[in-house]
Design a protein around this nucleic acid. Structure first.
Lengths: 134, 134, 134, 134
DNA sequence: GTGGTCTAGACCACA
DNA sequence: GTGGTCTAGACCACC
């Protein structure tokens, strides 16, 4: 298990981690009790500051998504709502859909054209690194 | 012409202005040569500091979207690509579509379900609060 | 690395910084990825307001010359054309040459005389005050 | 006689007029007693504000370069130093040469290359609108 | 009237 | 530590 971190993105790194854990738990890819990679491992892997990873984990702990297990590391909390099933995944998707819809509307883009473009984007998301470019 | 400013939003005010101008220009609602509301007018209208508006205008000038007309005010730059037509509106929409698609994929949401949810979001964007006021 | 700021000059301070960065990047003295002095450091060094420096950096970011690295500072953008080589330095020089040539022509000054005067000016620029300090 | 006004240039319009009169007088193209175009004529010709032209003329009057002749208009002052001869034209050219030299030096451009580019610029200045482009 | 420039100071967000 | 954001207020330059 590893995270997708884009240091250049507009969303702060710690928030990218938080949101990603939310999604992995909601989609059942991280079940209750599952271990998370250590702060140091994540920090090394992405060449980011350990404080940043720690901040994300602490925030997730405060939200009840993770639990800190002394000497072992962080794990997914047992009572993590939706863990193991995909019940509220749509709730996590809606905000970005709403934002995209808002922008499309402000730009005066035809809804059908927006939907078509979204279909393409979904295909791209399914096959992210298929290009032969080095 | 006036801006939609949400002082409570997380995006800074000056950036809300910048993005709104980008979209108004790209969608042809602001054609090349069109005047923008004066710094003071915008500041008074939204009860914000003139410097905040000025900052937005300065950035848009640095990006080549606006030109400064001394003693007269700011206007949309002539070479502002896409001004007057809707050619590159899609370019401004794609990033948010890509992000939404990425999230949907990470959540393991079925593409058809994501598209259906996007259609609903587009309807909501077109009729935000369903008020009868034009 | 430090800036040359003349608070008494007619050109605003923030613009002196902007132009200086442009030249340092174009001439390869600032390569892609290089760090810039922090806003606070520049502000302290020249006894100017941090916002003045910040304004210059923000404009350079809007122009694509600098990139913001969160929590770390500003750096020269990778795609900054000409970074690392001296390819487009002449492009930054031409406008002032054109202006000088235009003035010389309007004054009816003989081209040879203008060139001779320019040679002297170049010598002066190379040894501004003839002080022995390195 | 007419002025060359570039409303988009960085130098303010009123200053473009002032400097241009200085040069025309210094180079002998405007001799003592010669009439200048009326404020209204200049304003109409270049679609600029009459106040701007008036400000330039007033400044030139304060400098002793022009005299205001009631009911007739502005004329070149009799005691205008250098009028009729070209004695101090070089003094008016030097500042722009110094600026260009300074920029060339900051860019690390070879003096010989700078001089060569200046020769080209002088040729361009002598034949400004010779291109067949529409 | 237009925008520009700078200051002083406070508070926030990020790593 | 880094930069960001906003405010209040003063003064300038230009048209």
């Amino acid at each position: 298990m590893h995270f997708n971190i884009l240091p250049t993105a507009t969303t702060p790194i710690y928030r990218q981690i938080v949101e990603q854990v939310h999604r992995l738990v909601a989609s059942g890819q991280l079940v209750a009790g599952a271990d998370l990679p250590s702060v140091r491992a994540v920090a090394l892997q992405h060449a980011i500051n350990p404080m940043t990873v720690s901040k994300a984990y602490s925030l997730l702990e405060a939200q009840g998504v993770l639990v800190r297990r002394r000497g072992v590391g962080m794990a997914v909390a047992a009572q993590s709502f939706g863990a193991g099933q995909g019940g509220d995944t749509m709730a996590l998707l809606k905000p970005s859909l709403a934002q995209a819809a808002h922008i499309a509307h402000q730009l005066g883009i035809d809804p059908q054209a927006a939907i078509a473009a979204f279909e393409l984007a979904l295909n791209d998301a399914a096959a992210p690194i298929a290009d032969g470019k080095s």
